[in-house]
Amino acid sequence: MLRYALKRLISLVISLVVASVVIFAVIEVAPGDPASFMLGVNAQEDTLAALRAELGLDGSKIQRYFNWVGGMMVGDFGTSYTYRTPVSQMISDRLWVSLPLALYALTLSTLIAFPAGIYAAARRGKPGDLTVMGVTQLGIAVPNFWFAMMLVLIFAINLRWFNAGGFAGWDKGVWTGLHSLTLPAIALALPQAAILARVMRSSLLDILGEEFMRTARAKGLSRRQALWRHGVRNALIPVLTILGLQFSFLLAGSIIIEQVFYLPGLGRLVFQAISARDLVVVESVVMLLVFAVITVNYMVDLAYAAVDPRLRGRS
C-alpha cells in the first residue's frame, strides 16, 4: 500500500512539472502585452520598457519560468499587474470562499446521490427507481443557474431564510459563513448529485449481476444484506472517479453561480484577470487549479486502493 502511494506520488510530481511548463508556454504565446495594455496605445517605447522591467517581463523565457516556479514554491505568486497587490493574497482570499463552497457542494451531492442511487438500484424497474431516474434526468437537463435563481426566488426573496447574495465572511463565525454559502452550494450540488446518483445506480446494477452476489445469497444473506455487504463497496470505483472529476469542476467551474450569488470566488477572479490581461494572476490561479485537480486525482487513486485490494500491488 505504501509503495503504491509513493508510486502515485512520483507520478503526481511529474504531472505537476509538465503542467507548469505547459501553462507557462500557453500564457507566453497568448497575444496581448500586459505593459502596453496597462499604459494604453499611445505609450512611449521607453515607458513600456521600464514597466516591462518592473513587471519582470524582460528576462529570458527560461529565467522567467524558473522565477515563477521558484516563487510559487515559497508562496510568492508575484504581484498583480492591475491591482498592484500580491497575487498570493488575492488567491487566498478567494480560496477561502471557493474551497469551502466546493466541499460543501460535494458533501451535499454525495449525501443526496449515494442513497438515491442505491435506492434506485435496489428497486430496479419499480416506481421508486423510475422516480429517481426521472428526477435525475431533470437534474442533469436543467442548468444550475436556473436552480440558483429559483432558490433565490423561493428561499431568499419569498421566505427570507437566506440572503440573496454576497458572502458574510468567516470572521463572523463558521455558521454565518456556511449560511451564506448554503444556497450556492445547493445550486451547485443538484446537477452533480443527479449525475452521481445515476453512476451509482448503474455501477451497483452491474455489481448486482455479478456471480459473487449470488454466492452471497446462497450463504443465506437477504437481498438487502448482500447489497450492503458485497455490492456497495464494489460499486464505488466508478463513483469515486466521477466524484474526483466533480470536485475539480466545483472548485473552478462555479463562475456562473458565483456571479448569480455575487460571491468573491476563484472563478470570478480568473474571469476578471483574463479580461484585464493580468497574466500573473491567470497563470497562478490556473496552476493552483491544476495542482488541486492533480492532488484530488491522487486522493482518488488512494481511495481506489483502499476500496479494491487488487490495486495495492503484490503483498
Binding site: E210, E211, F212, R214, T215, A216, A218, H230, R233, N234, V307, D308, P309, R310
Partner: peptide, 15 residues
C-alpha cells in the same frame, strides 16, 4: 450449501 461454476467470479474481490 451451493458451489458455483466459475470460481474466478464467485468470490467478492474486495473481501
Amino acid at each position: 450449501g451451493m458451489v458455483f461454476q466459475e470460481p474466478m467470479t464467485a468470490l467478492n474481490p474486495v473481501k
